[in-house]
């Protein structure tokens, strides 16, 4: 799901990014994407939530990227 707040879109994904080494594995790819203002993974959540704050409203690029890196990634809905 995505929500627009103060000119930024917050994207929420359910993933299997399991632990800190997994987070490190996706970090450089995400850090290099233009448009991303802030991101984090709640690895203590059973849904391993990837949260991205971005100027971009479409989530597809993020989903594709995370999948390419070998993790599952689906947008969470309300």
């Amino acid at each position: 799901m995505s929500t627009l707040l103060q000119n930024r879109t917050i994207h929420i994904f359910k993933t299997n990014i399991h632990d800190q080494p997994d987070v490190n594995a996706i970090a450089s790819a995400l850090n290099n994407l233009p448009g991303i203002l802030k991101w984090n993974v709640a690895i203590d959540d059973c849904d391993k939530i990837l949260r991205i704050e971005s100027t971009q409203t479409e989530p597809d690029e993020y989903i594709d990227l995370v999948k390419t890196l070998g993790y599952s990634c689906e947008e969470l809905t309300f």
Binding site: M1, I12, N40, A42, C46, I49, R51, L76, T77, F78
Partner: peptide, 24 residues
Amino acid sequence: FSMQKLAKAANVSPATMYIYYQDK
């Protein structure tokens, strides 16, 4: 305590919780 449990108790989706807070 977890964001998931809170979402359930508050009757909102976990995604809604994560809109407002980065994590627990």
